[in-house]
């Protein structure tokens, strides 16, 4: 599966956590996702490990292969290089942090093979 690139989060947005607390997107911590998922009746937290990063169809795109969840399902996504993911214990990370910072004013780390990203799945989906 290779979905088309999706838009990145609007960095100046305010996010309301499951407990009602308001935070800016750039201030979110790993614990915020974990705690919100614990409260949530619909979503649970999962992890996706970056296995490979290849260049994509266009010069500013990359194809990232993830190993998802306990079943280690292989999922590929093609995204723009500035697209940020949220890495456990590290925060927002992209393949081109400079571009992400420039475009979205979202400070970012470099996304690397082996990074474990936060993902959220619907409870009871499987």
């Amino acid at each position: 599966a290779a979905p088309s690139p999706t838009p990145a989060p609007v960095p100046s947005s305010i996010i309301q956590l499951a407990d009602g607390e308001l935070k800016r997107v750039e201030d979110l911590k790993t614990e915020d996702f974990i705690q919100s998922a614990e409260i949530s009746s619909e979503l649970k937290i999962d992890s996706s490990t970056v296995e490979r990063i290849d260049s994509g169809q266009s010069p500013n795109a990359v194809v990232i292969q993830f190993s998802v969840g306990e079943l280690k399902a292989q999922v590929c996504v093609e995204v723009l290089v500035e697209y940020p993911f949220f890495v456990f214990g590290q925060g927002w990370s992209s393949c081109c942090p400079d571009r992400t910072t420039q475009l979205f004013e979202l400070s970012c780390a470099k996304l690397c093979v082996g990074d474990v990203c936060v993902s959220l799945t619907l409870r009871g989906l499987r």
Binding site: A1, P3, T6, A8, P9, V10, S12, S13, I14, I15, Q16, L17, A18, L22, V25, L28, D32, F33, S36, S40, E42, L43, D46, S47, S48, F66, V68, G69, L71, A73, V75, V77, P84, F85, F86, C117, V118, S119, L120, T121, L122, L125, R126
Partner: peptide, 19 residues
């Protein structure tokens, strides 16, 4: 400034097995 519920970030996170 708009306020979004936290789950609106789901599409922006890493893929899941259902993707």
């Amino acid at each position: 400034v708009p306020v979004f519920p936290w789950h609106s970030l789901v599409p922006f996170l890493a893929p899941t097995q259902s993707d």
